Simulated assay, not measured.
Amino acid sequence: MGVSPGTELELLVDKPASGGRMIARHAGEVVLLAGGIPGERVLARVTRAGRRLAFAETIAVLAPSDDRREPTGDPACGGCFYAHIAYTRQIQLKAQIIEDAFIRIGKIPLSDRVAVECASDRGYRMKARFHVRGGRAGFYREGTHELCDPRSTAQLLVDSIDAVDLVISTLATRGIAVTSVELTENIAADQRAVHVDTAPSDDLAVALSGAVRASGLTGATARASDGAW
C-alpha cells in the first residue's frame, strides 16, 4: 500500500475494529492502529505493512479526544488495547463492534442499539493464560514474546495472581519448571482452578497436590512436555 515499516503517517482515527485496534485510512487503504480513539488525529508509525493493509502504533496525539486518559501499567501488555480510553467510552466502542458484526458481517438488521453491561474496570477477568519464564508469570507484550507484568494492568484480582505465583513457586521447590498457567475462576472469585504446563517430572502429581493446598485453589490439572498428565 505504498508504506513500509518505520513510515510515519498522520491519521484521522475512524472507528473501532474487532481485536482492540482502531481503523484509520491512508490513501484509501486501511490502517489498523494501536493507541488511538475515534475522532482523534494522531501521528503513527507503521509496524507492519501488506499490499492492502498496514498496522501502526500511535507515537503522538495531535488532536486528543476528551475520552483519553493516562493508562495504568504498560499499554502494550496483553489485554490493554483500551487502557488509554475512559471506561464509559470503552463500553460504547465495544457496542459498536458488536453492532458491526451483526449488520455489516452477518447482514442481520438490528431494531435496537446493542447494550453492553458495565463491569468494574479493575479485576474483571475470570480467565487468563500466563506465560512463564524463569519462574516469572506474565502476559506477552503485543506482537512479541516479551513478558509484561500482569499486576500493573489491573485486569485480574491480586489474589488471582498471587495464587498463580504460589503454584509456580511451590512446584519450583520440587524441581518442576512451569512453562505456562491457565487460570479460571467464578464470578464471586471464591473458586479458582488452573491448568499447568510443565517440564517432565515423575513427581508431578504429588507436587501439584501440594501446590493446590498452598495456593488455596479449588483444583488443578497439569501436563508435562513429555505428554504425561
Rank of each mutant, 00 (worst) to 15 (best):
157 L>S: 12
227 G>T: 04
26 H>R: 08
185 E>V: 03
42 V>G: 04
186 N>Y: 10
151 R>I: 04
216 G>W: 12
70 E>A: 15
7 T>H: 13
97 I>L: 11
11 L>R: 05
2 G>S: 11
201 S>A: 11
223 R>N: 00
91 I>A: 04
61 V>N: 01
76 A>C: 00
27 A>V: 09
128 A>E: 11
204 L>G: 01
160 S>T: 15
6 G>Y: 12
13 V>D: 03
157 L>C: 11
161 I>N: 02
50 G>M: 07
189 A>H: 15
14 D>Q: 14
153 T>M: 06
55 F>Q: 11
20 G>S: 04
173 T>L: 11
151 R>H: 10
94 K>P: 02
126 M>P: 00
168 I>Q: 03
174 R>E: 13
26 H>F: 15
58 T>V: 15
113 R>S: 14
22 M>H: 06
94 K>I: 05
29 E>A: 14
198 T>H: 01
130 F>N: 02
101 A>H: 14
205 A>E: 14
177 A>Y: 00
152 S>Y: 00
57 E>Y: 01
195 H>S: 12
178 V>D: 02
75 P>Q: 05
150 P>N: 05
165 D>L: 10
102 F>D: 11
53 L>F: 12
35 G>Q: 02
186 N>V: 12
40 E>I: 07
195 H>K: 02
226 D>M: 07
194 V>M: 03
140 Y>L: 06
94 K>F: 05
225 S>Y: 03
7 T>P: 06
32 L>D: 00
198 T>V: 02
57 E>M: 08
119 A>H: 12
165 D>N: 15
229 W>H: 11
226 D>G: 06
9 L>V: 09
56 A>G: 06
185 E>F: 00
105 I>L: 15
212 V>P: 03
51 R>P: 07
69 R>D: 02
22 M>V: 06
173 T>V: 13
198 T>Y: 01
157 L>D: 15
220 A>I: 07
81 F>G: 00
228 A>R: 14
84 H>S: 11
83 A>L: 01
37 I>P: 04
73 G>P: 03
70 E>D: 14
181 V>H: 02
131 H>D: 05
197 D>L: 12
22 M>K: 04
50 G>I: 05
28 G>L: 08
187 I>T: 13
203 D>F: 01
112 D>W: 11
20 G>I: 02
102 F>R: 11
40 E>P: 12
40 E>M: 10
166 L>P: 00
60 A>P: 00
159 D>V: 13
171 L>Q: 01
173 T>G: 01
182 E>T: 14
215 S>K: 04
120 S>I: 05
192 R>K: 14
48 R>L: 09
83 A>R: 03
62 L>E: 08
96 Q>D: 15
90 Q>W: 06
77 C>G: 03
54 A>T: 06
3 V>R: 07
64 P>G: 08
219 G>V: 05
